[in-house]
Nucleic acid binder design. Sequence first.
DNA 1: GCGTTGAGTCAACGAGCGTAGAGCGAAAAG
DNA 2: CTTTTCGCTCTACGCTCGTTGACTCAACGC
Lengths: 186, 186
Amino acid sequence: MSELPRAERRRRTERRILDAARELFAERGFERTTIRAVAQAAGVDPALVMQYFGSKQELFSAAVRVAPAPVAGLGPEELVEQVLASLGMKLGELPQASLAMMRSMLTHPDAAASARATLSGQIAQIGASMSGEDARLRAALMTTIMLGVTVGHQLLELDELRDVPPEEIARLLRPCLRALTGPDVP
Amino acid sequence: MSELPRAERRRRTERRILDAARELFAERGFERTTIRAVAQAAGVDPALVMQYFGSKQELFSAAVRVAPAPVAGLGPEELVEQVLASLGMKLGELPQASLAMMRSMLTHPDAAASARATLSGQIAQIGASMSGEDARLRAALMTTIMLGVTVGHQLLELDELRDVPPEEIARLLRPCLRALTGPDVP
DNA sequence: GCGTTGAGTCAACGAGCGTAGAGCGAAAAG
DNA sequence: CTTTTCGCTCTACGCTCGTTGACTCAACGC
């Protein structure tokens, strides 16, 4: 039917499966997403998904594998703006891999481990850009604050946050985060 | 074996089932918790759980049914303290019913609806205690902030937040919430 | 051309799940 | 003591899931 070379055809199919998996994992989470549903969304036989990824768990790992956005920090000012920018991105088009990971992080052990690693990395980066005794703790709070806002907006889709422009949220959140960066500028 | 009256025996068994259900739902979420596991933890036959609660869904509803702590607000000062106190409770002995609801809110549709209702109620209460144009939005951000910190601490159990006394977290979070209450005192 | 490789399908297995109904034995009612 | 009630168990059904191995057929190397 199609006259594509085998390697290209293979890559495209694999990508279709991964895209479908990301979308379904982000929408329903790990447990409620079935291999059969992913295969159907990708227009493929369920056995092929297994053949390519080995198991549902490995499919999930491959689907949520994404490069975490680095927070190269300088002063507190830029730090807050960068964190807020990551929220702006999150409120806009947060990559579906991240949504998939967040959706499952409370119920799927591997997603929880992945989320912990990602968040700890972000906390370490933010903490390194701050000074003060409890910089690490303040960085952790900044991160969990962003996590909560993102969860409430993107996953729970709270009415009070829906249809609110990201800049408005960022504007209100800015002094809130400033209160955590500490008084001193490194 | 036991010589308890029937009504009392029934009530105790039902309570044992509900306690086991709450613990397992809080620990593993809705989908990973099986009726069989709840029954075993309660020392009871799985069919009895069905007989008492009708379905797994109704068992979950009964398990997470809990009176939401009211936030009777006055001025911004008391408001912040009250929200932080609710966090203090949350970081201490947050009722397992709430943990069960939070654990499942991202993957189980009914838990999501329940969480939305609870959070919206809290947002409305906080918003009613504040003045200003976007009081509702600021209340929503306060609520999601607390949600994020609670999730990161209680459910994800981030290393950076573990072993941190609640007062320390409350101390750092206080100016953060103050920045959202707005300048005016009603 | 021709055998080989590999993408993709088909049918099915085994396990675990939520759930239903019959039955048992002790407490309550008479 | 007899009958009824009901807390509780046992067994099993039906379904869906992840996963597997045999198969088909078009693309590839020679």
